[in-house]
Amino acid sequence: MQEQARIRILVGKPGLDGHDRGAKVVARALRDAGFEIIYTGLHQTAESIVSAAIEEDVDAIGLSILSGAHMTYFPKIRKLLQERGADDIIVFGGGIIPEDDLQALEQEGIARLFTPGTTTEEIIAWVRDNVRPKSAA
């Protein structure tokens, strides 16, 4: 039977910062690139993001963190995904992240981090190159 697989990505913002403009711009750009975006909005906990990602069977989670809490949330979400046997879900994100932290997070298994100045085209191109719909396996 012919398949109609679409890439599904959860876009969310963990933690306390209330700046969701970036997340919304990225969500819209990814939609316009033909992906299905589950937008979960502001003030998410790591647990709620992981639960939603599992129920929605997303291929990737894209997080926007501008509060400086990136060293807490990214590793925590990776750990929760591992605990629930879902660490095949790719985690990427964006925010104001210092160079040293970028390297540390990439070692923790965060697939890609985008810093200020990144164009939406770059993000879309990265998703196309790195994310596959799981149903197409």
């Binding site: 316009d32 033909g34 299905e36 589950i38 937008y39 909005g41 639960s51 939603a52 129920e55």
Partner: peptide, 29 residues
């Protein structure tokens, strides 16, 4: 689904977050 791009933004979960930690609820967009 956007008829132009084939993509979609699924945002209904934003309003259903009180049940996220509850195993007796399963939400699918």
């Amino acid at each position: 689904t956007s008829p132009f791009s084939g993509g979609a933004i699924l945002g209904d979960r934003i309003r259903m977050r009180q049940h996220e930690a509850d195993d007796g609820v399963f939400v699918r967009s």
